[in-house]
Structures are given as structure tokens and as C-alpha cells.
């Protein structure tokens, strides 16, 4: 039962990932792609946590934390870059 639910959760996250990737590919603008990238990252954090549960390894949580930090900085940097013009 529990395993089944966790697999269901993982597949829902997978579908969210695919939808965000579609938006990433079709764009149309740079900023749309950044939003899609942001969503992909957040979904990835969730997937890392589910993986940590399945593999029973607490180290993965540190990966999730650092990943969250890096993606936040990434979005901020790209947004600043957009704002200053090309």
C-alpha cells in the first residue's frame, strides 16, 4: 500500500517534470524558459526527497538543500542578466 502510493507520487512528479520540460522546449521567450527551469528544479527537489526515502539515505537531503540554494541563485542571476539588457 505504502509503496504503491510512493510510486504514484513519483509518477505524478514525473508528469509534472515532463510538462515543465515541454514548456521549456516551446518557450516562446527566454523568461518562459526560466520559469519552466524553476519548476523543473522544484520538482527535482521533491524527486530527490522521494529517492532519499526509497533508498533510505539521509545524505540525499543535503543534496536537495544545496540544489535548492543553487537553483535560487541561478534564477536570480539570469533575471538580473535579462533586466540589464543584452
Amino acid at each position: 500500500m505504502v509503496d504503491l502510493l510512493i510510486y504514484l507520487a513519483a509518477s505524478l512528479a514525473g508528469m509534472a517534470f515532463i510538462l515543465a520540460m515541454i514548456r521549456f522546449v516551446i518557450g516562446p521567450g527566454v523568461s518562459d524558459r526560466i520559469v519552466a527551469f524553476d519548476v523543473v528544479t522544484i520538482v527535482a527537489i521533491t524527486v530527490i526527497i522521494i529517492t532519499a526515502l526509497e533508498e533510505d539515505r539521509v545524505v540525499y537531503l543535503d543534496v536537495a538543500l544545496v540544489y535548492a540554494l543553487l537553483s535560487f541563485l541561478g534564477v536570480i542571476v539570469v533575471a538580473r542578466y535579462l533586466e540589464r539588457g543584452f
Binding site: V2, L5, L8, A16, I18
Partner: peptide, 24 residues
Amino acid sequence: LDVIGALFLVAGTSFLFLGGLGLI
């Protein structure tokens, strides 16, 4: 507790899915 936790996981990922759908 495990079942409650797993249900929370499903609820959370459903919202992620809705977010992805909204994105499209």
C-alpha cells in the same frame, strides 16, 4: 503513520502536477 505520510506525498506531487499543467 506510513500511510498518512504516503498520502501527503501523493497530495504534494498532485500539486506539482497541477503546477506543471498551469505552466502549459
